[in-house]
């Protein structure tokens, strides 16, 4: 049996993105040494939305951004049933001494973020790395990794799956909780 329920709709996602953008401005001010990095594939959509909102709120400031692919940095490459399709690595700047804001849609076990931290270090030694996530799944971490900015925190069972759908791919913005029983 397949059960699905919506935990965020478009309006709630928009509100969360606006709030997250204000929180980023509060911390990073003019984004002089800050770089927004979307984690491929799904974090890139959120990163684009946040960037759009920031550009609207700070029209005179050029905020640097890029997309990070972690396929070759994962620790489960040889253990997976199906190989991962590598995505586009779209980073044309050095991270040396920069403040990196890593953006992903869902924080679950923390393993993707660990791989992303490895990948980030390949582009230089950043001053700081923060994590922005739309959904923070509590009580499911395999590693001591916590987000800096959170859209919504949820408690979900380990057999439940949280899916963030974006208009660009699925035709609608929403967050679903799917239960496989």
């Amino acid at each position: 049996m397949l059960g699905k329920r919506e935990i965020m709709n478009k309006e709630l996602i928009d509100i969360a993105i606006e709030r997250l953008s204000y929180q980023l401005i509060e911390k990073h001010n003019k984004f002089e040494s800050s770089i927004l990095i979307g984690l491929q594939p799904r974090g890139a959509f959120l990163c684009k939305r946040v960037l759009k909102k920031l550009n609207f709120l700070l029209p005179t400031i050029d905020i640097k951004s890029g997309n990070l692919d972690i396929s070759f940095y994962r620790d489960d490459l040889m253990r997976r049933d199906h190989p991962i399709e590598p995505d586009i690595m779209d980073i044309n700047l050095s991270f040396e001494d920069k403040d990196i804001i890593l953006v992903d849609d869902v924080l679950f076990t923390g393993r993707s973020i660990r791989s992303a931290l490895d990948a980030i270090l390949s582009f230089g030694r950043p001053k700081t790395v923060e994590l922005l996530t739309l959904i923070n799944r509590r009580f499911s971490r395999h590693l001591p990794i916590e987000p800096t900015y959170v859209g919504k925190t949820i408690d979900a069972l380990s057999e439940e799956k949280v899916i963030v759908e974006w208009k660009e791919v699925h035709g609608v913005d929403r967050v679903l909780m799917k239960k496989n029983t």
Binding site: D69, S71, F72, Y73, R74, D75, L77, M78, P86, M89, S94, D118, L121, S122, F123, G124
Partner: peptide, 22 residues
């Protein structure tokens, strides 16, 4: 796949941990 690796070869650190079990 080589396209992806070529990008990695142009990074400041050109090493990835993909085959560390091999």
């Amino acid at each position: 796949t080589a396209d992806n690796f070529k990008k990695i070869l142009n990074q400041p650190i050109k090493k990835v941990p993909s085959l560390r079990d091999i």
